[in-house]
């Protein structure tokens, strides 16, 4: 099996000490700029109200409290629809959308990468072309399509379009092309394996890094989905929607708002934390040819 090589240590030729120190200081500055707002969110979520608005501002809480988190739960408990309902909607959307996306994209990516049926190039190039524009462009006609299908105010309207996200197919196809040797597929075919068996038993177990990558990208968008355009009844709303409702009360809710952000961001960041090296491995195959 051909593996994409990740160097164990970086190459060291022609490296001046001064240059290394300079680059380190530069990246330290940028890393602080990137990290400070994140640290601020986390520390704000543990601050009592009087510390949230202090002059001069303090980065870390003096008397840390879990009050914001318990307030968040209290508001949730008082809401029209039980909090667990929002949570289960979001978990369902994220789980179904991600699983379906990985399976459908992988099936399509497999034949795009390893088969040569007529029309394959045109289809793949169309997918690549759609990477080049933003989804806002299609927001209005998408609404019309949903209305025609009768999917307005159903969870389908959030799950089904996510199954066919172009980025996932693109990354999966590129990765399969690089990591699965044609000879392996040929050998299995000679042994009498059907196309489905080859896909499921040979190809899929060998592209685990790419699954994780598609999982991260899909979870990141679905876990945070507000669904405000398509969903109007409360019992079908999502966690992100419910949480943002809490924060609209403004300044007084700044602490709760931070707690909400921590809850929403911890899932995608957690996935990345545990699968970073696999995701980078997938990204090595992400390049576009001229």
């Amino acid at each position: 099996m051909k593996k994409i090589k990740i160097l164990p240590t970086s190459h060291k030729v022609n490296r001046s000490f001064g240059g290394t120190v300079g680059l380190f200081l530069f990246i330290l500055t940028v890393a602080c700029f990137m990290a400070l707002p994140m640290v601020l969110i986390i520390s704000n979520s543990f601050k009592p109200l009087d510390e949230l608005w202090a002059f001069p501002p303090k980065l870390f809480p003096v008397q840390p409290t879990l009050r914001n988190y318990s307030d968040m739960m209290d508001v949730m408990a008082d809401s029209l629809v039980p909090f667990t309902r929002y949570l289960s909607n979001t978990v369902f959307i994220t789980f179904a959308g991600t699983l379906g996306h990985i399976i459908l994209s992988s099936m399509c990516a497999f034949v795009f990468a390893k088969k040569s049926f007529p029309g394959r190039k045109v289809m793949f190039e169309t997918v690549v072309l759609t990477l080049m524009f933003n989804a806002t462009v299609t927001a209005i006609p998408n609404y019309l399509v949903m209305a025609k299908l009768g999917w307005i105010n159903t969870l389908f309207s959030l799950v089904v379009p996510a199954l066919a996200s172009p980025l996932g197919l693109y990354l999966m196809k590129q990765f399969m092309e690089q990591s699965i040797p044609d000879a392996l597929i040929e050998a299995s075919r000679v042994d009498g394996a059907s196309q489905f068996v080859i896909f499921w038993r040979i190809v899929m177990p060998n592209v685990k890094p790419a699954w994780l990558t598609l999982m991260l990208l899909s979870v990141q968008s679905l876990w945070n989905i507000g669904g405000t355009t398509y969903i109007f009844s409360d019992e079908k709303k999502t966690l992100a929607y419910a949480l943002h409702q809490i924060t609209t009360a403004g300044i007084a809710r700044a602490g709760v708002s931070a707690a909400v952000s921590v809850v929403l961001m911890s899932v995608p960041i957690g996935i990345f934390l545990f699968s970073q090296s696999k995701i980078i491995e997938t990204m090595a195959a992400s390049g576009m040819k001229d």
């Binding site: 994140m38 969110i41 990141q220 992100a240 952000s261 961001m265 960041i269 934390l273 970073q276």
Partner: peptide
């Protein structure tokens, strides 16, 4: 460093913190 730098782009609406900044 990768985690630190990449985190803001996958954090949903964490950018709302800039309202406080």
């Amino acid at each position: 460093l990768t985690l630190l730098l990449y985190a803001p782009s996958i954090s949903g609406s964490a950018y709302m913190i800039w309202q406080i900044i």
